[in-house]
Design a protein around this nucleic acid. Structure first.
Length: 196
DNA sequence: TTCGCGATCCGCT
DNA sequence: GCGGATCGCGAAC
């Protein structure tokens, strides 16, 4: 079942939790690529009264982050370290910025296409890590703002009911005074398809 | 207009 | 384990 708009309108934390075990789908000209989400991180909002100063939306709306302030169910894609793309799911209602960074996937379908997108990568290195999964899934900068409810990139339900989710601190946000302590990284218990 | 740096990855040691 | 690659964003000049 493909996710509808209402599935994306919860808070970033709730949506991130729900995304574990769900499947990211990209229908490309090379074929359909699917990966089960095994690791992601929530950004935006508050935790125990402290604002998330690790979120791109923290300093307000800018040309890059404007999509985070729109209704949930869009793609927030940005360039990191000058050469890699990070794929995020925009969530929450309009005016309430929230995003979920996808950090790792377990390949489900179209592994040959993923392999073609990442010729030198084997095993976990194919899809574990935000930059790696973006490359494997064929994510491009031009897909910024794409509507996941109607486009060829979307989320579909997996076996979320049968799994257990674990939480931990987010990766590489040491600069965030409050945010570095938030337990907003979610992982699929027992999975080996994790970036670290 | 300039400048510092990032929600990273990869190859070499 | 470490450092280089590489460039758009956003704040400051």
């Amino acid at each position: 079942m493909r996710w509808e708009r209402k599935n994306y309108l919860s808070s970033a934390v709730e949506t991130a939790y729900n995304l574990i075990g769900a499947v990211l789908v990209h229908e490309t000209s090379e074929g359909i690529i699917k990966g089960k989400i095994t690791e992601c991180e929530a950004y935006g909002g508050f935790y125990q009264g402290k604002p998330d100063d690790g979120a791109h939306s923290f300093k307000g709306k800018t040309s890059r982050t404007q999509i985070l302030f729109e209704e949930g169910g869009h793609a927030y894609i940005y360039l990191i370290y000058g050469m890699y793309l990070c794929m995020n799911i925009v969530c929450d209602i309009k005016g309430q910025p929230g995003g979920v960074l996808l950090r790792a996937l377990e390949p489900v379908q179209g592994i040959d296409v993923m392999q073609k997108n990442r010729p030198k990568a084997r095993g976990k290195l194919l899809t574990c890590g935000p930059g790696r999964l973006s490359m494997a899934m064929g994510i491009e900068r031009s897909m910024y703002g794409m509507d996941l409810v109607s486009g060829n990139l979307y989320i579909e339900s997996g076996n979320e009911q049968l799994i257990q989710v674990e939480s931990s601190k987010r990766i590489n946000i040491e600069y965030a005074t409050y945010g570095k302590h938030f337990p907003w990284r979610f992982t699929l218990k027992g999975s080996s398809w994790i970036s670290k």
